[in-house]
Nucleic acid binder design. Structure first.
Lengths: 198, 198
DNA sequence: GTCTATACAAAGATAGAC
DNA sequence: GTCTATCTTTGTATAGAC
């Protein structure tokens, strides 16, 4: 009972997806080719077509793999009742801080969003779903925080969630192009004041 | 004494740049071709090479034209001593709200930042300069606001400027991929609380 | 300044041998 | 599953006529 019926799960297929993810996060989807993957993997590009007949198939597999990894992490974190809102937020920001620490890497879906109209139509709903999942998670975190008395009832969870997510995605984007040591940390600290209790 | 010695200034050249700007904002740089521009302009792609011999030349011209337009607007606004910080911020956000209202359009440099490593090296410094100019402008607005007593002295202008800019860029990116009516307005309203006087 | 024609490389993809 | 070989299309760019 595979999660995604059409996504190959063999070892080579997984390595192809891993390379594709990395390349998309650094160069984007339009700019990469089967040749780029072939060069890194050490097998011919025709062989990659055996696993992913069309580039669209590979693109979708890359998004789904990326989203699945983050989703399972976030679900696990959200289930821990002992965590304060502040701790929950720290956990949420972890992957973004990691991306910022790795040179030249941004969120895979952030990269794809920048060229969304150049993507095959079949890839677009997955990007949208990724964004909606994240915003819903942050919103739920805030609602929970209000219920626990850790977030001010004046906070509009939907609005703040959208702002927090936009700031993190934007910070990754700007940091890679313009640099700025400690940029992500500064943005995280600043957006925390949007909902942290005084 | 042209601003950019190598950038053609003829009427056709300007129309080419305008089309290139629009296409980059919607589809990105890697995904567009001289053929795309040819189709819209009604002249053959070989003729476009007369004005911009290499695609890199056109890319640079597009960034410079885009940045110049925004810079002159921002300089004019910043020079008006009568404007309160709140009014200044509204003026700053205007172009972002306009982009959000136009379907499928994001900031040109936001789009380029998403594929920065796929860009010709000659284009990258212009993107960086654009981001630095914007963050410096916002920072100056906040410093001015503190001096005028309209912004709390507790605000760290550099950090808040980076956060505000990241949130706006990210909001455009996310909105185009995931939709969300009133998203930009919500984000603008929320980030205003980062520095608005209580 | 724009055209036709063309060169050249790269991309996505398929066929068939092993 | 991977290979070689090949096909087709597209992209960037140039040459030379008008």
């Amino acid at each position: 009972m595979p999660d995604h019926p059409k996504a190959p799960q063999g070892e080579t297929a997984q390595r192809i997806v891993a390379i594709a993810m990395e390349l998309i996060q650094t160069k984007g989807y339009s700019a990469i080719s089967y040749q780029d993957i072939s060069d890194r993997l050490g097998i011919r590009k025709a062989s990659i077509h055996y696993h992913f007949p069309a580039k669209t198939d590979l693109g979708i597999a890359a998004i789904e793999a990326y989203a699945a990894g983050l989703q399972s992490y976030l679900q696990e974190v959200a289930g821990d009742e002992r965590l304060t809102t502040a701790a929950l937020f720290d956990h949420y920001c972890g992957p973004f801080l990691q991306l910022a620490a790795a040179p030249d890497t941004i969120c895979l879906c952030g990269a794809l969003a920048g060229e969304i109209l150049a993507l095959p139509k079949a890839m677009r709903p997955s990007v949208k779903a990724f964004f909606e999942m994240h915003e819903a998670w942050i919103e739920a975190m805030l609602v929970r925080g209000v219920a626990r008395g850790e977030v001010s009832p004046d906070v509009d969870p939907r609005r703040v969630a959208r702002t927090v997510f936009a700031a993190l995605q934007g910070a990754l984007l700007v940091q890679r192009a313009a640099g700025g040591a400690g940029r992500l940390e500064a943005v995280v600290a600043t957006i925390r004041t949007l909902f942290a209790a005084p």
